[in-house]
Design a protein around this nucleic acid. Structure first.
Lengths: 234, 234
DNA sequence: TTGTTCTTTTGGACTAGACCACATATTCAT
DNA sequence: ATGAATATGTGGTCTAGTCCAAAAGAACAA
């Protein structure tokens, strides 16, 4: 049993004993290294183990904190993100980061079944739970079925905009889900280091006539979400 | 741009150029540190970034290797793991690690809707693709509907055993999916370090009469799988 | 009291090793 | 030629710092 495994266990026991609750800050690395009579690098290895398990998370130059519970997230549920979060006793908010119309890359052309280099709208949003950024999304829409969609208030639910302004509801849903590292804009938006662990959910949403509505790239913090899928709902 | 980010990019370019293909071994850490004129710790930070992105993986005391492609895995598909893997041009194998009858813990009692501390069978298996361990599974079965199930050949498909010997087919499926760290037996079975990144899929399988068949804990290497879910199949 | 400046604190990044435990290759003995 | 013993190679772990960049807190000025 290595030293950092032992330290990790001690810290984990402290956290699980309830002395440190979600959002609590851990002592500084230098202080912990002193307490455990070891070097900072070794101490950090222990912290990284706990981070991997989703027990704690880091904020750059601010410290290490006890993680809140994961959000139970049913990707097939069409209720609004905010409603889902509130039902779990948490406080949601959403920020519109950017809207652009750009040429779709190969993958997005394929997902939306459009010719290569088609013009598509991209809507970038950041979702937070209890003021903590947890989800960075890029929505890609074919402009043709949705004239002037970018003029709407895109802070809210795209679902509602589709229904109320374009008379469109959801049908089929296709998902690809895999663990990945958060890089580029996703890492920056979520305020995590390049290369931090994440979960990517790529969605293709269809309407009731089985036409493609949009595709979304959802970059989640690895410690923030638990997906729930139940075939009885379909 | 930090030094290790620069090194990571250079290594990634090399790998993506096709010079190094899946399964190829990278030069040793000490050699790479020398090539990049840096220390081993800094060089390792670069390697860890690539590992996080699933580009490379490590084998303890053996070196770093270029990762093979992810398996496309539809959790709702009832075909056998081996068939699914072969259809993707890969070579599967399965090892039965252990069978035991033990008292179910609180979570498993809840998932199987059994009284606390009920006796359940636990079947532990390891799945490999092209000789690389990718999935460690713990199946938990209620013994009552399946007399003598442990006498069967549990290297193969549980699905087939249910159908051929007990006349039972699948119905509903419930999943919980989240990124986690691989610890304990999962890490050991997959031959990865304690705390390595993984994806946990907890399944509850029902039969056609909506009775619970079993629950499974699937611990996947984080870089080995891409889940596909399509509501049109349900 | 509020805003600005300075100081301290914090994690991020990096150096230069050392020793450990296991895997692999090489050498030696039969 | 084969098996055992030895040497080398590899990542794992750890020490003892150093300097950097940004956040937070404290002190000072208006």
């Amino acid at each position: 049993m290595s030293q950092f495994q032992t330290i990790k266990r001690t810290l984990q026991d402290q956290i699980e004993s309830g002395l440190l609750t979600a959002g609590c800050k851990l002592p500084a690395e230098r202080k912990l290294a002193e307490l455990f009579d070891t070097t900072r690098i070794t101490l950090r290895e222990a912290l990284v183990l706990l981070e991997s398990e989703g027990v704690i998370y880091r904020e750059e130059r601010r410290g290490w904190f006890v993680s809140p519970p994961r959000l139970d997230y049913n990707p097939a549920e069409r209720s609004h993100f905010h409603e889902m979060v509130r039902q779990q006793g948490r406080q949601p908010d959403t920020r519109l980061l950017d809207c652009q119309t750009l040429a779709a890359n190969t993958e997005i052309s394929r997902l939306l079944q459009l010719p290569a280099l088609s013009r598509v709208h991209r809507v970038q949003r950041l979702r937070r739970i209890d003021q903590r950024p947890v989800l960075y999304v890029e929505h890609y829409l074919n402009p043709a079925p949705f004239p002037d969609i970018l003029q709407h208030n895109l802070n809210g639910s795209l679902t509602e905009i589709y229904q109320q302004h374009y008379g469109v509801g959801y049908g089929r849903l296709r998902l690809q889900i895999y663990p990945t590292a958060l890089t580029g804009e996703a890492a920056a938006a979520l305020n995590v280091a390049q290369g931090s662990h994440g979960l990517l959910i790529i969605r293709v949403n269809y309407d009731q006539e089985n036409r493609i509505l949009d595709c979304d790239y959802e970059y989640w913090r690895h410690d923030a979400v638990c997906l729930l899928v139940d075939t009885a709902e379909f």
